[in-house]
Structure formats: C-alpha cells, structure tokens
C-alpha cells in the first residue's frame, strides 16, 4: 500500500514529466532553429511527442538521465523546470477562441509569477510579496474559470471543467501547505515541486478545454 508521501512523489513526478516537453525540449529546438542549426525540428518534436505519449514519462526519464550525467553541475530538476516556464512553448496551452481570452491571460500570468520563485525564495521580503501576487493570480484565474461556467452551454464541458477546477484548488492548497512548511523548515525543493504541480494543473485545464472547445461549439 502506498503512503501519502509516495503518492505525493508520484504526483510531483507526473507534474514534472508533463512540463519537460513544453518547457525544455520545444524551447531548445526553437533556439536551435533560430541559430540555424541544420535540424529537422518538427521531426524531433514529433518523435518526442509520439514517444512520450506511448511511453509516458519518456521525456522526463530522458532529461533525468541527462541531469544524472551532469551530476557535477548539481542541477535541480524541479528548479530548472520551474525557471524554464518563461521559455515554455505557449501554443499548446492557448485556446484560440475569444471567450477564453481572459483565462489564457490569467493562466499565463500565474505561471510566470510562479516561475519567479527560484529567484526570490531566498529574499524573504520579496518572496512574501510574490506570494501575495500568486494569491491574486490564483484568484483571477479561478474567477476566469468561474465566468466560463456562466457562458458555457454544454453540461458535459461544465462538469469536466468543474473536476479540473477542483483539482487545481486542491493543488493550490497543497502549494499553500508547502509554503508554510518552507517557512518552518526552509526546504526550497518542495516549494519548486508544488509550484510545478500548480503549473501542470493549470496546463491541464487549458489542454482539456482546448480539446473540447476549439473544434466544436460549446
């Protein structure tokens, strides 16, 4: 029987795995393209996407292995992924319908504020201000989700969105509890991991809505 801690580790790893492709691999390929490195970017991206969908966690294992090889550089994967949110490829998580403009903006803002955590976590005053910003951003994002309940007609999508929203609230609580533990014990990595979970849940809301709404009336 798995313990709560084991479950938490699994959840954290899943969140991390979901961010590897958009936050690390795709931006790296984009940069290679910009630098005129002769490479068939779309092929590599497709291969990664396909393999990752067939073998969940492939991209995570791939990067974790790279981190292991570069052990001497003392890379913190949670921190690296969180920082790289600034570079994340955005198209995958943008719903191209005017009704979702507010949610797109609020979700992006929340993710960007969360990605500032590694830079500010050691400056107590700045970090507390950032937490206030995160609280405001979570509220605005939830407001944007709640507004969608009023405009959406499809009960099915409403239900799916409600489940996703509840998960997001659950991870927001977990993030809050992790911060409290951080102020007592000072473990940064737990905070990075909880922030990544929150970003992953935000992406999941966007991805779910994109799948259900972009190509069909809602």
């Amino acid at each position: 029987m798995s313990t709560d801690n084991e479950n938490l580790t699994i959840v954290s790893e899943t969140a991390l795995a979901s961010l590897i492709l958009p936050n690390l691999i795709t931006p790296a390929l984009d940069k290679m393209e910009k630098d005129d490195v002769p490479i068939e970017k779309s092929n590599i991206r497709n291969v990664f996407a396909k393999v990752d969908s067939l073998l969940p966690n492939f991209a995570y294992d791939f990067i974790a292995e790279l981190v292991k090889i570069n052990e001497a550089k003392n890379i913190n994967l949670n921190e690296m992924i969180l920082r790289s949110e600034k570079l994340a490829s955005s198209d995958e998580y943008v719903i191209k319908r005017p009704e979702f403009k507010e949610l797109n903006v609020r979700a992006k803002q929340l993710k960007l504020i969360l990605s500032r955590i590694p830079d500010e976590i050691n400056d107590r005053k700045a970090f507390l201000e950032t937490i206030k910003e995160i609280a405001a951003a979570i509220k605005k994002k939830l407001d944007a989700v709640n507004n969608l309940f009023e405009t959406m007609q499809s009960m099915e999508i409403k239900q799916i969105l409600d489940v996703r929203k509840r998960e997001f609230v659950k991870y927001s609580k977990q993030f809050s509890n992790t911060l409290k533990a951080f102020f007592r014990q000072g473990q940064c990595d737990e905070v990075y991991s909880a922030a990544n979970c929150l970003i992953s849940q935000t992406n999941l809301i966007l991805k779910t809505l994109k799948q259900h709404c972009e190509n069909s009336p809602y």
Partner: peptide, 8 residues
C-alpha cells in the same frame, strides 16, 4: 499565507 488560504 492567510491571504493565500483565503483565496483557496
């Protein structure tokens, strides 16, 4: 933290 908890 109360502010954050309040939002959630």
């Amino acid at each position: 933290m109360s502010l954050l908890d309040q939002v959630v």
